[in-house]
Amino acid sequence: MRALTRRLEKSHGEHHPKEQLPIIDELVATVLSQATSDVNSGRAFAGLKARFSSWEEVLHAPTPEVADAIRSGGIADVKARRIQEILTVIEEREHMLDLSRLHDLSDEEVYHYLCSLPGVGPKTSACVLLFSMGRDAFPVDTHVHRVAIRLGLIGPKVSAQAAHSMLGRRVPPELRYPFHMGLIRHGRTVCRPRVPLCSECALFDLCDSGPDLLASGKAR
């Protein structure tokens, strides 16, 4: 893992932890990041914060208004409903829109709490744990999942959901953030879903799939 991380950093640059957001902010930001680019999800989150001064306002606003505020992030109507559903459950449980008490819970307790919210799965929960709380989680998105399979870190039939716990156990805590970010960048630019650029890959000699992909003509 250390060799892979070093090569990813040399190829794509180092990744320094971003500013930690409050838990609900990171939760909503992760929902907005689904099925869109980082740029568009960032614009959607900024639009939401500019339109509404609190999460209470977001919760009680008409859903079309919330959707309008996040339109740049794509599938805005679906995401607006999901955000309000999440906020509704949090308010019912906590009697306020604040999840700071989760900092006092274990990683496992936080993970199960977040996964019990509407539409929140392992990836979103892991993102909140890692990015907002600084915990030792390892989020697995489509890029991380694909690259991990090709490298042979997990088997070809391992689901993304199962990969969270499998990779979380294998990746040392201090490498989880840089390795996660490096795999995402690598998956977007080199180890692409179609026609990966194996001849340009800094991990080629460590990869289980690269030689076969090149030999079959499925990679460049």
Rank of each mutant, 00 (worst) to 15 (best):
A126H: 06
N40E: 00
L183R: 01
E19Q: 12
S116L: 05
L99M: 01
L153V: 12
D25K: 00
E109H: 06
A67M: 11
H164V: 11
L214S: 05
V89D: 02
V147Y: 00
E94W: 02
R150T: 13
L114H: 09
G155V: 04
L4Q: 01
K123Q: 08
A69L: 01
I70K: 03
K18Q: 14
L32I: 07
Q84W: 03
E174R: 07
K18C: 08
E14N: 12
H16P: 03
G217M: 05
R170K: 13
A50P: 06
K10R: 15
V140L: 09
G210V: 04
K18D: 09
D77A: 14
H143K: 12
H16W: 13
E108A: 14
F45I: 07
L8A: 11
I154E: 09
V190C: 11
A67V: 04
G134A: 10
L213F: 12
V58I: 12
I90T: 02
A80S: 09
S72L: 10
R150L: 08
A80Y: 04
I154V: 14
P64D: 05
D107K: 08
H16N: 13
R194A: 15
E174Y: 10
M166E: 14
A162P: 04
H145V: 08
F52V: 02
V140G: 08
P178G: 04
S72Y: 05
Q34G: 08
V39S: 10
M1Q: 10
D208Y: 14
S72W: 10
R220S: 15
R135Q: 10
S159K: 06
R93D: 11
A137G: 09
A215E: 12
G74E: 03
H145M: 07
L117W: 06
A80P: 05
P173G: 13
R6K: 12
